[in-house]
Amino acid sequence: MTSILSINTVRFVVLLLLQVLVLSNINFLGYINPHLYILFILLFPVKNNRMTIIFLSFLLGLSIDMFLDTGGINAAASVAIAYIRPVALKFSFGALYDHQSIKFSTTELGQRITYISILTIIHHFIFFSLEVFNFSKILLILQNTLYSSIFTILLCVLITIIFSRKKKK
């Protein structure tokens, strides 16, 4: 239990600092940035209380908003994906989720990519809708969502692969 707590605390702080100091300054092609911090919400232990993850993702989103002066858009998008996470888990892992026995390091790569993609795209869509805050610019929202999602999904998958291999050895 203590190891889960400490791992998640470290992950929270590291992802927060990585996001605000490095990843939000990439500006690939002028505006594309990955939002890797949602990895914290994606990899949060399944067995834990649903209230805890919703509250923690709000806290994480709000801290990032504070650093990036974005009002509350990161918090809103994070809370939303934390709430619908069980649905995405059930959709991508099926029977495994019903038994509450998912370990992300042992799941199949295809299933993991589906899971990451669903939540990333939803997160980015809410994020950019709130950032642009103008539904007459829906094309801009969709364009940003698409490009940034690709970037985020790639990074998330890569990082989960790198870190799960260590555990197998």
Binding site: F55, G71, A76, A80, L130
Partner: peptide
């Protein structure tokens, strides 16, 4: 959990509109 989600979502929406 839905009520908590709704509450936190509205709070962050409030911050967004304010910004």
């Amino acid at each position: 959990s839905f009520l908590l989600f709704l509450f936190l979502f509205l709070v962050s929406l409030g911050f967004t509109i304010q910004s």
